[in-house]
Every structure is written in C-alpha cells, then in structure tokens.
Design a binder for these strands. Structure first.
Lengths: 215, 215
DNA sequence: ACTTTCATAGTACCCCTGTACTGTAAAAGC
DNA sequence: GCTTTTACAGTACAGGGGTACTATGAAAGT
C-alpha cells in the first residue's frame, strides 16, 4: 500500500536506527545493511532516502545535533528560576553527562563522530567547531551576568570558565563511557567543580567511596 | 639475507606504522595492507609477526601506552625541582596536551582506541580503566603532599582535584584535536586551571584574543 | 482509463579486507 | 653435507561492503 510518505520522517527514522546501531556496536559497525535491518526495512530503502552512505552519516550527525539542541533547550525552559546561573549550570551538567540511556547514547555516538572528524576535516567544520563555540559563547554570557550579580568572583575569566566547564564535562563524560567512572561519580565531580566555581565552602555530598570505579 | 631478527623490534616497527596510519587517516583506515605499506614490508610479514589483526591492534595499543608512560616518566625526571607540585603538574599538562606532533598523534590514536573500547568491553579493561586510575592515584598523592605543605587549600578534595585535572586535560585535548581550539589556547586553559587550583590571584598571560579558534 | 510517478523489493557487481596456503633463499644445527 | 628452521614473497579464497540495475504494485494526475 504505497501511499505518499513523509520523507523527513522516514529519514529521521533511519537516522535513529543508525544511532542505535552506533551506540550498540560502535560507529565502525554502521553499515547500510545494519542500519536497514535496525530500521526494519530493506537495504534499498535506505539507499532510496539517502543516495550515499556519506550523506546518511552526515544526516545522522545533524539529527543528533538537533536532538541534543532540543533537549538542552527543554532543560533550560524547565528551570524554576531561569535567572539562576547555578541552576542553569547544574541543568547543563545533568544533560551533558551520560547519566541516562539517552544521553549515554548521544555522548557515545557524538564522540565517535568527533574522532572521525579528527582525520576528516570536511566533516568537522560545522558541528564540532561552530556548535561547541556557540554553546561556549552562550555559557560565557550566562557566567558574565552571574559575575555582574556577584555570584562568582570578579577576578575569574568567564570565557575560560565556560571553556573549562564544557571541556571538563566532555572529559568526564568520556571517562564514564569507557567505564572508568560511574555516572554518580561523574555527577559528583561536576558538582564539585561548580561548588569551586561559585566558591562554595561546603562541597557536595560524596558518592560511594572513591572517584574511580575500580581500585 | 635472512639473518636472525629481533622480533620485538620488528613488532615495534609495525606498531609504529599502525599508529602513523591511524593518526593520518583514522583508526578505521587501519588495515593489514595499509600498515604493511606504511612499514615498508609485505602484507604477509605483518601477518608473520602478528597472527591476527586483533593481536596487532592490541599490541599497538600497548605500544602506545608504554611510549606514553616513558614520555611521562622522562618529563618527570627532567624537572628542576621534583618536589614542586606546581612544576610537576605543569609538566603533566605539557605532556598530555597535543602541543607537538608526537603528543598530537598519541592523543588522537589513543582517543580513537578509547572510542573503540566503549563498545568493546574486552578491549577496555586494562588500558582505559586501570591506566587512568593509576595516573589518578599518582596525581592524588602529589596533590595530597602539596596540600600538606600548604600549597593548595586544605578544604579541597585532592582526589576530586586529580580527577578534575585529568578529565579536563582530556577534554581540552579533544577540543584541540577536532580543531576547535589551538594548542596555545589549550595551554592557557590548563594553566588557568592550575592557577585556580593553587589559588593564584593573577591568571597566566592570555593567548591571542578568544579561547575558541573561530568566532 | 491510461499514463506517470512513487515507494518498495530483489539481485548482482566489484572492490576491499582478513586469512590461509604454497614457495624459497639463507642461515643454523649436527 | 644434509636437514631443519627462519624470514620473507606471492597468490588465492571467502566474506562483506557500497552501489547500481531492474522489476512491481499502488496511488495520483488528467
């Protein structure tokens, strides 16, 4: 019953399948046939909606980026006090860390793409440079207003603090993904960082024993 | 002239070739034939020294780890004042960041392996969990003595500080590898972090303009 | 009603990859 | 001096990968 079909929706469905395969088996295991099987369609249909594998890969990356952007926006709008920098940053931490299955998947696949981009400059430009830069600027302005309000010390370099926060989040996320740290330990680390940023004398409650999963 | 040959040296030569290929074209481009060509030998020789590709990959990873360990040890011993925690940490930063071609290569390939390990638990255990944990413990003890000497504030969680330093370094390194930040900007960020850790009121000299490469 | 277009299926092709098999000259062992 | 081992080369094979080609019902247009 071949009715008229929404191409955008079909493409999103396929991109989702790709992300699931990549999260489960790794980005190197993403093949046209594997994506087709995961999406529950024939190999040819995947090629019908994406002429080439490179296009599919690129589309899935954009799909990922957009989803992440939407999650981040939603998280921001769900804040009780949108003006509180502290609450905003804690929301960022909760969203950026691979604490639930969704963000775990996102972080893993995103990082896989990032590694791919390291040796494929054409892939890198838009998502991995402009995207983070935009986030960093956004964060910098949040920190600047917090600094103006006296929430964080005046001698801090807000631009550096924004970069530090994002890079630290990325690094901690990776340590979780490889299994070095648990999500709870990562959360503690990031909250500890925030407590240092806001010059909070009492650190957050500690997680189970140590900061590394295995002794 | 088939004389008796040092197998360990041959294996190291091949592993080096693998690392070069991975650094140039990505770990996904590492194939038996590509490694053989890069090493200047026939395909069969590579298989002669490594029965299977999995063994080769594993050996190259161990090779990388050992090299990194040696570089780190050498850097530590070349310090003027081995007791100075600040100098030690700055040495760590200089070695961990992809500032020169060697550490750029190392960081890139290492991260590629790390991503591989995220979906291949068998690969992860030894190098990506035990290795970082060891480094983290080492750092923790350095920080603890610095704390006892009053160089860093008493209320800091040295274990968390060690983890923060390493994860931040990793995250910043990745931002350099994808081309978001320059090596100089990364250096500034890490020195800024150290100045915060040691409660240094004057931040290090700023790099060119902003912290991100492109506006 | 007839044609065109759309969404889908099946299949085939060619290249690349890991691996195995066979061969060979030079050193080493006895 | 003969045999065995060692370090290498060449080639072949089977599987999987992306991609292209052809076919086919069902809807839509006119």
């Amino acid at each position: 019953m071949p009715k008229r079909v929404d191409h955008a929706q079909r493409r999103a469905h396929i991109a989702d399948a790709l992300v699931r395969v990549a999260a489960r088996d790794g980005l190197h295991a993403v093949t046209m046939r594997a994506v087709a099987a995961e999406a529950g369609m024939s190999l040819n249909l995947v090629q019908y909606y994406f002429d080439t594998k490179a296009q599919l890969m690129h589309a899935a990356l954009q799909h990922l980026e957009q989803q992440s952007h939407e999650r981040w926006s939603a998280q921001l709008e769900s804040l009780d006090d949108p003006g509180s920098a502290r609450a905003c940053l804690e929301a960022l931490v909760d969203e950026a860390l691979p604490v639930d299955a969704d963000s775990h998947t996102f972080q893993l696949v995103w990082t896989s793409y990032a590694v791919l981009a390291m040796t494929d400059p054409e892939l890198a430009e838009q998502p991995f440079i402009e995207g983070p830069n935009r986030l960093e600027r956004q964060l910098t302005s949040i920190l600047a207003t917090a600094q103006a309000a006296g929430e964080i010390a005046a001698y801090l370099d807000v631009s550096a603090e924004a970069a530090r926060l994002l890079s630290l989040g990325h690094g901690v996320g990776i340590s979780v993904l490889v299994g070095q740290r648990s999500a709870a330990q990562a959360r503690y680390l990031m909250r500890y960082h925030l407590s240092r940023l806001f010059n909070d004398p009492t650190p957050p409650e500690a997680p189970g024993q140590h900061l590394t999963a295995v002794s």
